[in-house]
Amino acid sequence: MTNTLLASPLFGITLTLLVFHLATLLNQRFKYTLLNPTIVAIVTIIVILRQSDISYTDYSAGGDIILFLLGPSVVALGVPLYQRRTEVMQRLIPILSGISVGAITSIFTTTVIVLLLGGDEQLAITIAPKSVTTPIAIGLAAKFGGLVPLTAAVVVMTGCFGAVVGPALCKFLRINDPAAMGLAMGTAAHGIGTGRMLEIDLMGGAIAGLAIGLNGLITSMLMPVLKVILG
């Protein structure tokens, strides 16, 4: 009977919601950027599954249902883009050039570093969409032959790292304009960076949210180029 219960989507969904809720409470209690609820929940669930010998397949029966919602979430990013269309049009040139340079830098630096340190082409494709929001990154990895779960992990890692070091790095480089800072945070560290930016400055956070969608678009157009170069 226990096996039937574990294999039901009820298990994976309940575990995810419960652990994420507790991770959010922990984050609110301690207000420490490294205690990002997403990463805390991921690590906790992996430890729970390993310790109790529950297979990933049992978890993913429910996990896949939550994962499915990432698809319509990407479509939903069109709404904030539409709502901020006036600000976007006013700052179109700096916004587009900033995100384009960031997207090219991301794909170029990851690929070169991976290949220099002895990684293979598949690993390069897997890591290349690291700065793009998870649902788009997953779609890109699947489409171009990367390892989807590894891409997801790298994206979350990128988001947490960018959210932690981003504001300090911007200060060091004298990027003090909240719009430019938000653009950097959203382009480099997607949703997790946007969350951090919203705590610093509202307008900057809005621009970061916009950068998530635009970087997703630009990276999606650059990935076929990378695929051709890698052969």
Partner: peptide
Amino acid sequence: LLKNLSMLFVPAGVGVMV
């Protein structure tokens, strides 16, 4: 969806254990 985006990432990250 967008307010709960960070929760939707969790199963994707757990998949890395494989």
